[in-house]
Design a protein around this nucleic acid. Structure first.
Length: 425
RNA sequence: GCCGUCAUAGCUUAGUUAGGUAGAGCAUCUGGCUGUUAACCAGACGGUCGUCGGUUCAAAUCCGGCUGGCGGCGCCA
């Protein structure tokens, strides 16, 4: 078993160590060969000198190909000429598996890279993104554990739609039609009765024919639902959760390659909250003709978010712009809901709301929206048996990651992006 | 669903406006080189231009159909 990683080499200067990894780069200069060894923790240069090493080892280093798996032994020395400031003066060089000609090189197109995602995953950039994705979930779990949230595991296969309007992927379920879940929300609402504060991290599926840099057909959805919380309370949870996720990665040095400074990852709470009405005014002042009542298009959202440096809330959207399960405000025109938007056009990160807890009001709303209540009987039951004020929200992990890492396209935020035109590899 | 755009070697591409059967860089292979940083130098190999059809003496280039990709809109996280 491998016990030493590239990152540990920094502490081993002057010592003889053994490293396992893959060839990231290789350059042959006659009597000296430079191999950049890569492992999950980073890269380090290995120098192989003809005169200081056995002929087999030198021969191996000379013929080794990019992405071959290798074992090297050597002394760790400081050297300013090496890319990371240290290098391994090689004494043994073994090829474990000689790679065939690796298809990826500098300048490869993005489409080609997606076609061979199973290989392009090895890039340093994607490696960092995967680590940051993991870290933000650690930050989320840290917050959730400290604040008495229970993780639950709702089904992905469902029979009922949840969000209005969005398209479902249908599957053949033993001869019946079923769907891939778009949101765990309705199931989470059932779970607040035994557990009060619940969350889940599940994939959500949207069969929207979206071709934009912000949409995926499958994405990681972190959803929270809590009893005894109103719209105000849940906004507080949202910002504390996001702040905790950002704080977790603020110390991570890999952040620099994405042009982010750690100070930017320390959010100033409370985040700004602007009412939908104010947002409309801001957009109108910019010369865009937008009517009260419509949800923001991307152009409007871009204009709005360019006014902010940190994520911010827009709350109290008009009823016609949102979904039936939300709690209506006393004004009769808006819902007690809030979206968290990332600045500079990165878009909506969170959509949340207080839920309608009154049976009659919910039924009325469904009738007005022309929704068939039959498949929702179990959902309506929640209002029959001990209904309680409750609120919740859903957070798109890839959207958040996209903002944190300044990604141009959301597909870079996942291992194997699923989009309208890609299910492979 | 709508709008736009693109398809030339393993990869990235020039050539398309004004039609005359393709040019480069990288990769690969061979040789050289003991400090490179996307190493460098020399040489070789490699494509009939997404696909089907049309116009023409002649089509990568003009026209039409099809397929696929990319970008954007709507929708959303």
């Amino acid at each position: 078993m491998k016990t030493l990683y590239v990152k540990n080499a920094n502490d081993k200067i002057g010592e003889e160590i053994e490293l396992f990894g893959w060839v990231y780069r290789q350059r042959v200069h006659g009597g000296v060969v430079f191999v950049i060894l890569r492992d999950s923790t980073g890269i380090v240069q290995v120098s192989i000198h003809k005169n200081n090493i056995g002929p087999d080892s030198f021969n191996n280093a000379q013929k080794v190909t990019i992405e071959s798996s290798i074992r090297v032994k050597g002394k760790v020395v400081e050297d300013s000429r090496a890319p990371t400031g240290i290098e391994i003066k090689c004494s043994e060089f073994e090829i474990i598996s000689l790679a065939e000609k690796f298809p990826i090189q500098e300048g490869a197109g993005k489409e080609f890279l997606l076609d061979i995602r199973h290989l392009s995953l090895r890039s340093l950039k994607l490696t960092e993104i995967m680590k940051i994705k993991e870290l933000i979930m650690q930050g989320a779990r840290g917050y959730l554990q400290e604040n008495d949230w229970h993780e639950v595991f709702p089904p992905i296969i469902t029979s009922a739609a949840c969000e209005g309007g969005t398209t479902l992927f249908s599957i053949d379920y033993y001869g019946r039609e079923a769907y891939l879940s778009q949101s765990a929300q309705l199931y989470l609402e059932t779970a607040i009765f035994p557990l009060e504060r619940v969350y889940s991290l599940t994939p959500s599926f949207r069969a929207e024919k979206s071709k934009t840099r912000r949409h995926l057909s499958e994405y990681q959805h972190l959803e929270l639902e809590a009893a005894w919380m109103d719209a105000e309370d849940i906004m507080k949870v949202e910002e504390e959760l996001v702040a905790s996720m950002c704080r977790e990665i603020s110390e991570y040095k890999g952040l620099e390659r994405f042009g982010r400074k750690k100070e930017e990852m320390i959010l100033n709470l409370p985040l700004q909250r602007i009412k939908y009405d104010e947002a409309i005014q801001i957009i109108q002042k910019k010369g865009i003709d937008i009517e009260w009542g419509s949800d923001f298009g991307y152009e409007e959202e871009k204009l709005l978010t360019s006014e902010f440096e940190e994520p911010f809330f827009v709350y109290d959207y008009p009823i016609e712009a949102k979904v039936f399960y939300m709690k209506q405000n006393p004004d009769g025109k808006t819902y007690a809901c809030a979206d968290l938007l990332a600045p500079k056009g990165f878009g909506e990160i969170i959509g949340g709301s207080q839920r309608e807890d009154d049976l009659k009001a919910l039924e009325n709303r469904m009738e007005l929206d022309g929704i068939d209540k039959t498949p929702y009987q179990w959902y309506l039951d929640l209002r029959r048996y001990g209904s309680v004020v409750h609120s919740g929200f859903g957070l798109g992990i890839e959207r958040l990651l996209m903002w944190i890492c300044n990604l141009e396209h959301i597909r870079d935020a996942c291992l194997y992006p699923r989009t309208i035109s890609r299910v492979e590899p």
